[in-house]
């Protein structure tokens, strides 16, 4: 880091004092307010760590269309579309309100289209379904919370990152 441009700044070599600490505290507080750590991120990370033990390849989350001004974990579920890509497979899912109260419906499409086993993994268990010949699948009444999809395709299953349903 080239900081030579600051060499003439008065006070540059002074040790950290109470006023430095207070200024740093303001920086931390401002960051927390303007760019807060998303709700549930640590829990999603813990679930991702659990899944990391499995022999899978992780897809990349590519596009998320969320209601304007919202972020994934804090948004009330309206309809969100998320695309995951992998060199062998693309999965698009649309999330909407489930038929049971407080649940989410997941409509998925896969390309290339084929009949594949799809699992939805949550910290409390796994649900499985099959895609149809057009690559479509539906998982209804999924409880809210962190989840990851796993698709059995090829020798190594492909998983999505953990998302907040």
């Amino acid at each position: 880091m080239d900081m030579t441009e600051f060499d003439d700044v008065p006070g540059a070599d002074a040790p950290l004092d109470a006023s430095d600490a207070a200024l740093l505290a303001r920086v931390a507080e401002l960051d927390d307010r303007l760019d807060p750590v998303p709700d549930g991120l640590a829990e999603r990370a813990l679930f991702a760590m659990t899944l990391a033990g499995l022999e899978t390849e992780v897809m990349e989350l590519q596009v998320v269309e969320a209601p304007v001004g919202s972020v994934r974990s804090e948004a009330p579920v309206e309809t969100r579309t998320i695309t995951f890509t992998h060199e062998r497979l693309t999965v698009m899912i649309a999330l909407s309100v489930g038929s049971a109260a407080g649940t989410v419906r997941v409509d998925g499409w896969m390309a290339p289209a084929e009949v594949l086993q799809v699992e939805l993994r949550r910290p409390d268990g796994t649900r499985a379904t099959l895609s149809d010949a057009d690559g479509r699948f539906v998982l209804d009444d999924v409880p809210r919370g962190p989840a990851s999809l796993l698709v059995h395709q090829g020798e190594t299953p492909v998983t999505t990152p953990v998302i907040e349903l």
Partner: peptide, 25 residues
């Protein structure tokens, strides 16, 4: 690290002062 942090803080104070803030905390 200590000196760099000190420089960054000092620079931040300089900018704050230029912007008319007199009390940094």
């Amino acid at each position: 690290i200590g000196a760099t942090r000190g420089r960054c803080l000092a620079k931040l104070r300089t900018v704050l002062t230029e912007r008319g803030e007199t009390s940094w905390t």
